[in-house]
Amino acid sequence: MLVEGIKSRPVYGVLAPQPGLSHIIVAEGEGAEAVLRMAEAAPAGFFAKSHLIFVPRGGDRPDRADGLRALGAADFQSVGSPADAAAAVATLLRDAKMGTQVYVTGTEGLIGLVVQAAETAGIDHASIHTEHRGSMARRVQCVHCKGITENVTTQPVKCSHCGLTLLVRDHYSRRIGAFQGVCIDAEEPGTAPRPEELFK
């Protein structure tokens, strides 16, 4: 079960402006810098066709939001959580034009949620662009009880629903937006190693 180098592990890119009739951009915390960097390469009028959603993280510098606001997006929204951002994206995509491009940058948890919302809305995965910034914390689905544990930074981790100690595999489901967690001491209960900070 402890296999390295699993290929369903998401590969994140670097955000770059894409041709498109409209753009939905989601940034969380340090992701704001990825958007500012993308803005340097953006053609004139890019942000006039853009909807920008920002999820501040606790302890964020206040000027992050100001920097994004200054880009002049057609619409700018600050929301409270990754789940709110995913819900906002789902709402926007309900009336989206063909060829809408989606950009997501922030933690893996945020990226997972927003990509899942976009794919559910029928956006082709080739039109969804991601860049990882900030914490490496993961969303993990327990394969046993199916419960999701958010913001996982340790290996192994206790499932917040059924309490089993889970090995966090690199196996990732875009549909669920989460990594797979499998009981680590199933063969000899009680032998789970102590959790170590691994996904910071």
Binding site: H171, R174, Q180
Partner: peptide
């Protein structure tokens, strides 16, 4: 392997955990 986890994945993704063969 878990259908519930792998459903919706493409060929390379659902074979992700298999070692060596990639």
């Amino acid at each position: 392997w878990s259908l519930d986890f792998d459903i919706g994945m493409n060929f390379f993704e659902w074979h992700g955990p298999v070692p060596l063969a990639h």
